[in-house]
């Protein structure tokens, strides 16, 4: 049996599928608890249902992008491991880089099926899990104390309304910082000559389409469009990438 056939065997699917199923159950459990808690503190069920719908539509497109990551990695690692890695804890940009570097560390010329051995595969799998586990590990030990210290979870809505919402301003600013780091990197890449203009063009198109969505939602009373604004803008940006690319 070839190494890829072994990596794609039912036992491998069973191991990976069990972990994914466990994490999916945890998500369902947390979702039901949050919904019930929302009802018990008097939140509007319509708002919570809108959150679920908007989050589902928001996630659909990036998920297809992540599926491509599974496909890309499946040629050398089989399908079950990339499926596990990108369903649980992983990130598309991370997995690809670590898998490549791990393959080189175990003596392969790169990530490819022809050189893959069972020992190289299990080492790569361990490294992929180990390098990115710190967020989860820190959650176990520090989240309760960390959130308690910053007081975020204890602030009541009434104090928020009267207290000026510094946390809210800081959070919006943090997100502006996050977006600026990425948009700044596209500009830097292009101006310094180490990258091309396509990411900038895609970002501009997506931003312009988002402007149209916001205009329609706010000025033309089409509030329902808001749930599709991010996904719609992304589709437009990605379509632009196909046209420009």
């Amino acid at each position: 049996m070839s190494i890829l056939a072994q990596l794609n065997s039912p036992v491998m699917y069973l191991i990976c599928g069990t972990i994914i199923a466990f994490v999916a159950l945890v998500c369902v459990f947390f979702m039901i608890r949050a919904y019930k808690a929302g009802i018990s503190i008097g939140m509007d069920p319509v708002k919570m249902k809108r959150t679920i719908t908007a989050s589902a539509t928001f996630t659909l497109l990036p998920s297809i992008g992540i599926l491509l990551g599974v496909i890309a990695l499946s040629g050398s690692l089989g399908t079950p491991l990339p499926w596990l890695r990108l369903s649980v804890i992983g990130a598309l940009h991370y997995e690809t880089q670590v898998a490549e570097a791990a393959a080189e560390a175990v003596g392969l010329s790169g990530l490819n099926a022809t050189e893959m051995t069972a020992e190289a595969f299990t080492t790569i799998a361990l490294l992929m899990s180990f390098c990115i586990m710190w967020g989860m590990l820190m959650s176990v030990f520090f989240t309760k104390r960390y959130l308690g210290k910053i007081g975020g979870s204890k602030k009541s809505e009434s104090s928020e309304n009267s207290g000026g919402g510094i946390g809210d301003i800081a959070m919006t600013a943090m997100f502006i910082g996050l977006v600026s780091a990425y948009v700044g990197s596209y500009i830097g890449d292009f101006v310094s000559g180490s990258g091309d203009w396509l990411p900038i063009a895609v970002a501009v198109v997506a931003g312009a389409v988002m402007a149209v969505f916001i205009y329609l939602a706010e000025k033309k009373n089409l509030g329902w469009l808001e749930s599709f604004s991010i996904a719609g803008s992304m589709i437009a940006g990605m379509a632009a990438a196909v046209l420009f690319g």
Binding site: A24, A34, G38, K47, M48, T59, L60, S63, G152, S153
Partner: peptide, 28 residues
């Protein structure tokens, strides 16, 4: 929902749980 409020906590949990489930389903 305002940051740091119970509403934010609930919305954030609902949103991330939904997002994770959609990813799991799409990948499956």
């Amino acid at each position: 929902a305002k940051a740091g409020t119970p509403e934010n906590e609930i919305i954030s949990t609902l949103s991330i749980a939904t997002s994770s489930l959609v990813t799991v389903v799409v990948l499956a």
